[in-house]
Write a protein that binds this DNA or RNA. Structure first.
Lengths: 169, 169
DNA sequence: TTATGGTTGGTTGTACCAACCAAAGGAATG
DNA sequence: CATTCCTTTGGTTGGTACAACCAACCATAA
């Protein structure tokens, strides 16, 4: 049988481990800073992607707009982002990071990068890091795309068909 | 400056994206099956790691024992695992997956692998997959280890030093 | 009128911490 | 020795926080 499938099967284990590391690790690599944890991702999106509307952010991150809405409210209250009404459509706000936001994000990123570099990947050589970066990017992009498609279809996800009942092996 | 640090810095973006994909994707790649979502990780640990005690599982996954306790209760109620008292220490239960649990897990894994293979990584060639697998494993291991150390130390995480002052909320 | 961007209310799942019980494992004491 | 504490450790349960979802809702566009 396709060993492609088998490779993917093997991949599940490390992938689960990695994805399972929710609030750990990187999330924790933050102490002070008045930047709320959950908002960081969004802020990053804004800093790197420039002025955006809320719905775009939601689409990018593949989360519900309500989630984005609340995170934005928080970020705004923290002074990390600013809104300005879209001149061409008064329903939408255009969002961008403030100076303060940019600084806070950068600080946070630096902390995380330091931790990664010193505590986690200290014995990785340069080429390995580059390789990882390249693959990780590709993977996360593909996952994101597939995820979007998946939620776009109210269809059943992975095609049941053989999942009728157990008849293990 | 050390380009190692810079590489790690670059790595943050794809890493965030990936870790941010909480309930999406893989988690969703499950429809029927009476196996609870959150328990899957634990069950997998049991199937692959053999009979274990609860505290070991918690340590492995780097989560609170209370979390494990509840997930185990759920899994037991679903008939996915069994407990038996440790003959040498009556405080502890030894846990192992039931046949049913093994089957359910395998089924779930197969679904995910299929989705990965067909919807996500379909255009990846074999060598790329292997490479990814290797790096991902190494990364997740290193992250896990570093995370354990991090929680082991009541110390401050990433060396505050410049983060004195207020922390409002 | 209907569709769309965004917000808010309500619910669920999952994590944490703290408090707790039960069993072990040592001392100190009879 | 055996017995009675005291501390430590494995595990569970209560309470709380947070992030995600869906549904219902305004305001504005088309």
């Amino acid at each position: 049988m396709g060993s492609h499938f088998e490779s993917c099967e093997r991949l599940l284990e490390p992938l689960r481990k990695l994805l399972g590391m929710r609030q750990l690790a990187l999330q924790r690599a933050q102490h002070g800073s008045e930047l709320s944890t959950s908002g960081t991702g969004l802020l990053s999106e804004l800093v790197h992607g420039g002025e955006s509307r809320a719905s775009d952010l939601a689409h990018h991150r593949v989360v519900d707009t309500s989630v984005v809405s609340r995170q934005l409210a928080q970020l705004e209250q923290e002074g990390m982002i600013e809104r300005r009404p879209d001149p061409t459509d008064r329903r939408v706000s255009l969002l961008r990071a403030t100076e303060r936001g940019r600084a806070a994000l950068e600080e946070r990123e630096r902390q995380k990068a330091r931790w990664l570099s010193e505590a986690v990947l200290n014995d990785w050589d340069e080429s390995r890091l580059t390789e990882l970066d390249e693959l990780l990017r590709a993977l996360s992009d593909d996952l994101l795309i597939a995820s979007r498609q998946l939620l776009a279809t109210p269809e059943d996800l992975v095609t049941p068909e053989d999942t009728a009942e157990e008849g293990n092996r």
